[in-house]
Simulated scan of single mutants.
Amino acid sequence: MKSVRFAEFGGPEVLQLVDAEEPHAGPGQVRIAVRAAGVNPVDWRIREGQVLGAHPIELPSGVGLDAAGVVDELGEGVTGFEVGDRVFGEGIDTYAELAVLSAWTHLPERLTFEEAAGYPSVVETALRILGEVGVRPGQTLLVSGASGGVGSAVLQIARDRGITVIGTAGAANQDYLRGLGALATTYGEGWVERVRALGRVDAALDLAGSGVIRELVELTGDRNRVLTIADLGAPELGVRFSGVAGSVPDALAEAVDLISRGRLHIPVEKTYPLADAAAAHADSQSGHARGRRVLVI
Rank of each mutant, 00 (worst) to 15 (best):
T105V: 09
Y95Q: 04
L264M: 00
S210E: 05
I213H: 04
D257L: 05
V51H: 13
G149S: 09
A280I: 00
V14A: 15
V14D: 14
A20Q: 12
Q29W: 12
G131F: 07
A68T: 13
F241N: 07
H281R: 11
G145Q: 00
R194H: 08
G221Y: 15
W191C: 00
A282Q: 10
V78S: 12
H106F: 09
G80T: 12
I32E: 06
T220L: 10
P273Y: 08
G77L: 12
V165A: 06
Q50M: 15
G49I: 11
R225D: 01
T271P: 02
P60K: 01
K270W: 00
V226L: 05
E90S: 15
E193V: 06
A245V: 05
A25V: 10
R35Y: 11
D257G: 05
G84L: 10
R200C: 03
T164V: 10
V133P: 09
F241T: 02
G138S: 08
A197H: 03
G246R: 02
V87D: 01
A184P: 05
E115I: 04
L232G: 11
H24C: 15
V71F: 06
G188K: 09
A208M: 03
L107F: 07
Y95G: 02
D283K: 03
A253W: 00
A197Y: 08
Y176M: 06
N173Y: 04
L101C: 05
V83Y: 04
D160H: 12
A251Y: 03
E97M: 05
E22S: 14
A184Y: 00
L141N: 01
V51K: 12
D19S: 14
D66M: 13
E73N: 12
I46G: 01
I46Q: 05
H265I: 00
R110V: 10
A289D: 00
P12Y: 14
A245L: 11
H55N: 15
V18P: 01
G209T: 06
S247T: 01
R110M: 04
A20S: 15
I92P: 02
G287T: 08
G64R: 14
E97Y: 12
G64L: 13
L142T: 03
G291S: 09
Y95E: 03
L155S: 01
G148V: 00
V30E: 08
E269V: 04
L98F: 11
E48S: 13
L127F: 03
L107W: 05
R47I: 08
G190L: 09
E269G: 02
R223V: 09
S242G: 06
A230K: 04
G209F: 00
V87A: 07
Y119P: 03
A278V: 02
L111C: 06
G179R: 11
A96C: 10
